[in-house]
């Protein structure tokens, strides 16, 4: 079996993988990073979103072998080393942007990618960016609010509009 080597959450990792091993399987099963979830098999739900070389990708739609040499960040890797939540994670808690938590890792990783590209997104931009992240619990209200709050905007005023 070919060997892959990559950096995951700042740590070098490597493993033997079959060609068909998906990145999400490598993360969940080989590295025991079970924060990245699988919610579908048609690449639509976004529960599996991670960052590969700084870009949001669906880890269920990429082979582990394709991440050779890449820098991968998962939900486990974004809080401070002492466990302090980052601004997006904190905003999700403050604004109740999660219920069952299953879509949450993908939501947070997509939100992080959005804010990196667009530090002050409008409501419409947030909603548009989340096209590939399905949440069944929240009706999206508090997710959108949380992301806008994480970008430093006064969300209570916006949501009351």
């Amino acid at each position: 079996m070919p060997r892959v080597t990559m950096t995951v959450n700042g740590k070098p990792v490597s493993g033997e993988v079959e060609g068909r091993r998906l990145l999400v399987q490598f993360l969940r099963e080989d590295l025991d990073l079970t924060g990245t979830h699988v919610g579908c098999d048609t690449s639509q739900c976004g529960a599996c979103v991670v960052h590969v070389d700084g870009h949001a990708v669906k880890a269920c739609t990429m082979f582990a072998a394709e991440a050779e040499g890449a820098d991968v960040t998962t939900i486990e890797g974004i809080a401070a080393p002492d466990g302090t939540l980052n601004a997006i994670q904190q905003a999700f808690q403050d604004h109740h942007g999660l219920q069952c938590g299953f879509c949450t890792p993908g939501m947070v990783m997509s939100a992080a990618a959005l804010l990196a590209e667009n530090p002050k997104p409008s409501e419409a931009e947030v909603r548009d960016y989340l096209e590939g992240n399905i949440c069944r619990c929240t009706g999206y209200h508090n997710i959108v609010k949380a992301i806008m709050a994480a970008s430093g905007q006064d969300v209570n005023a916006i949501a009351a509009e």
Partner: peptide
Amino acid sequence: SKRREDVRFLTGTGNYTDDIN
């Protein structure tokens, strides 16, 4: 009150059934 369960879900440390092996 803010939800205490959020911390584990937001850091990828929840324990869903598929996480059990």
